[in-house]
Write a protein that binds this DNA or RNA. Structure first.
Lengths: 228, 228
DNA sequence: ACCTTCTGCTTTGTCGACAATCTGGCGGCT
DNA sequence: AGCCGCCAGATTGTCGACAAAGCAGAAGGT
């Protein structure tokens, strides 16, 4: 199988079949990318006119957003976009460290050789990007990398928790804090070493390196938040 | 604060304010406890007559069950209770091992002295139960123990993943496989050592012991499943 | 002047009806 | 005979209307 290199994360096909699906994806996008401000109220009637759908599908979308922890809802009162706290972000990264470390370990065990080859190709294309544009390596590339390793774990509960639950939250936090694309070259090196460990089927090292990689990110965010 | 000892897990008050809440809790209970069989179809109209509520609230309840991974839904087709596979259970226990290990570590760090005192009291009451009834220590006590440590981690994303997401699934698996209350005395000893580590604020040991504790459970389940 | 209570309005929760889609079986065609 | 397409039945998806709960402001009492 020829390696398919994609920079965007669009190949993770969450296909929307119903109107509620589409509305959910749209709303999630608008929240994650900051078009709907954090801590703002989500009025059902308002949104139903805005997105031109009935209140039922808005309600369903909001319920799903609540399951992702992107909004909080109080009965008989309404839903608000989650507010961003530094403590919350640290807590989230603690969980990420544990789970993605595990994902890396399992990926080293369970990924097929061709999947690993694809991962290497992805990394090479990132390298080309870094070399060419200098400050490439924003969001998409980083996320693609983590995505693949998570999927490579082949552990469905783990994949679900990380992709459905944590991932979009992290993305929202990044956008809100304007943390897109720091630590460019160091992060790239870290990725390289992780992939190498996975290629060598060194489960223990893969986990350690991934944990460290995320821990660095966490520290980076913490110092940046303290500065503000 | 005097230690309050409860054997049931009912003190985790998920209070249902709306009809949809009550229906969700009821449905979840019926699924987890096996009154609704695994892999059976959840017909919206049928359930709406059975529980005497409208289809809307059934739909909402099913959506929430899907978020807990207790049911799987296909668009335009319907929802089914998740089917039980040994592999799925092992995957779930892998995640539990990682997350509850982390919870134990954080609990050793973040629980207050009085919370730890309560935990010790709980353990003593369990000991009394084991001594008195011999084969006490089913479900409730074990789960109370894990609950407290999870909550003691004080990490909200972690608590949410374990309590809302994984816990009920594990319970369902246990019921379906008839795994209630094996490993009585050994598990009790393991609990004792975990609490001791937490009391000593030994984060690393608490994590190791908790991971081992869950790993034992996993192995126990695996051998039992292979025998069948 | 301040607090309490009532009232009216807005928003969410629940419901039943209608529209769209899938399932399964029958009939026809190759 | 086997396969494909079509039709009927049932189920899910979507909608707008009604009911119930919360919130803000005005009115009245202390």
């Amino acid at each position: 199988m020829q390696a398919i290199i994609l920079v965007s994360t669009a190949y993770i096909t969450e296909q929307a079949v119903t109107v509620a699906d589409k509305t959910f994806f749209q709303l999630r996008k608008d929240i994650v990318e900051g078009d709907i401000l954090p801590a703002s109220k989500l009025s059902e009637t308002e949104l139903s006119t805005k997105y031109a759908v009935s209140r039922s599908v808005i309600r369903e979308a909001i319920n799903r957003l609540e399951s992702c922890h992107l909004v909080e809802r109080k009965a008989n009162v309404g839903a608000r976009v989650v507010a961003l706290t530094p403590e919350g972000l640290v807590e989230l990264y603690q969980v990420r460290e544990s789970l993605e470390g595990m994902a890396a370990r399992l990926a080293a065990k369970n990924m097929t050789d061709s999947e690993i080859a694809d991962l290497n190709s992805l990394l090479n294309s990132h390298f080309e990007g870094v070399k060419a544009e200098g400050s490439y390596y924003q969001e998409a590339g980083d996320l693609d990398f983590h995505y693949r390793i998570i999927l490579g774990s082949k552990n469905r509960p783990l994949i679900s928790i990380l992709i459905d639950g944590i991932y979009h939250l992290v993305r929202m936090y990044r956008v809100q804090l304007g943390m897109a694309g720091p630590r460019v070259s160091t992060a790239f090196d870290e990725h390289k070493h992780i992939v190498q460990a996975i290629s060598n089927r060194d489960e223990e090292l893969a986990e350690i390196l991934m944990r460290r990689h995320i821990s660095y990110s966490k520290n980076n965010i913490q110092t940046k938040l303290i500065k503000n």
